[in-house]
Simulated assay, not measured.
Amino acid sequence: MAATIKDIAKMAGVSITTVSRALNNHTDVNRNTYKKIIKIAKQLNYQPNSSARNLVLKKTNTIGLVISGLTTRSGHHFIYDVICGINEQAKLRNYDVLLIGTSTQQQKEISFKDLCLKRNFDGVILAGVRTGDPYIEQAMQSDIPTVIMGVPVATAFCGSVVTEDVSGAFSAVQHLIDFGHRHILFINGHKETVVSQFRLEGYIKALNKNGIPYNDNYVAHANFEIEGGSQALESLLSHNPEATAVFCASDLMAYGAMMKCMELGFKVPDDISIIGFDGIDITEIVKPCLTTIYQDRWQMGISAVNMLLELLGGSEGYIRFMSPKLVIRESTKMLIK
């Protein structure tokens, strides 16, 4: 016999009303009680009568996952892991996820609100956006519950999940400085992305703290991909042969830089130390294993869904900062003077 709300209430020792409010993501339910109810519901394999409930609430139980710039070139582990976290948590909370790819140009052709209304989304998770993408401003001005990933903004209906990119970049550069490096190149991502701007800020902040002057010639912008890191590294080294270390704003660019170093006859880390950012699986496979700044991509996806459900429950938007951590492996080494 199928489990009912009454069964859950009896096992949890709470009222039927409390169970109902918890299952409908109301924010006035005690957090521990909420977790207990969700756990029991899962144990009992509780299946709500979603059709009847949605007719009353005018809900579709569908989350729109709108990713800007999603192509075969962006299908590496970072975004994949985020998507998996979103999908897993949404499924646990009885929501479907509909993935929509977009671009800056497409955003000019159909507005954010029109897209959401056309697809009947209850709420939206917006990822991969650049500073010039129309959907950022439109989402902030909309009354559609939205979580923007990577852009620190908050309004009544809009929140965000972001990595502490400044502190992450600072940690990466400080690690190289602690190892005695002072001529540190920086291969950054697209100028138009917020994360690139924050990681540049962290790079400069670490240099300033240690009395090392910022040199604009030490910085190049690429596309977060392997070939971008390779090309940028070759160009930077040709103009700055005194460099002994490289900080890359993505692990893929760090891998590309590492491969180019070997091609040019440099040993990593004996001649040049390299550190990446993201903590994707490739960092543990390549030789030497890559020192990196790790981001919990899975947890970022889970946090985005949890925040969106809070917004759907009536909470106001806020910014959730995710702390990255330095993972020291084999690609960085103390500089021997």
Rank of each mutant, 00 (worst) to 15 (best):
K6V: 11
D7R: 05
S15Y: 02
T18A: 15
T18S: 14
R21C: 08
V29I: 15
L44S: 05
N45Q: 13
S50V: 13
S51N: 14
A52F: 07
K58V: 05
K59L: 12
V66R: 00
G69K: 04
L70K: 01
I79W: 13
Y80H: 11
V82S: 02
I83N: 06
G85K: 03
V97L: 06
L98T: 13
G101M: 12
L115I: 07
L117P: 00
K118I: 08
D122V: 05
A127T: 10
S142K: 02
A154M: 10
F157S: 15
G159D: 02
S160D: 06
D165E: 14
L176Y: 04
F179A: 13
H181P: 07
L185A: 08
F186Q: 09
F186P: 01
G189E: 02
R199I: 05
L200M: 13
N210T: 09
N217M: 10
V219D: 03
F224P: 01
I226P: 00
A232F: 02
S235Y: 10
A243D: 08
D251F: 10
M262P: 00
M262A: 11
I272Y: 04
F277K: 03
I280W: 04
T283Y: 07
V286M: 10
M300G: 14
E310L: 06
L312W: 03
G317Y: 03
I319G: 04
I328L: 06
M334P: 05
M334C: 13
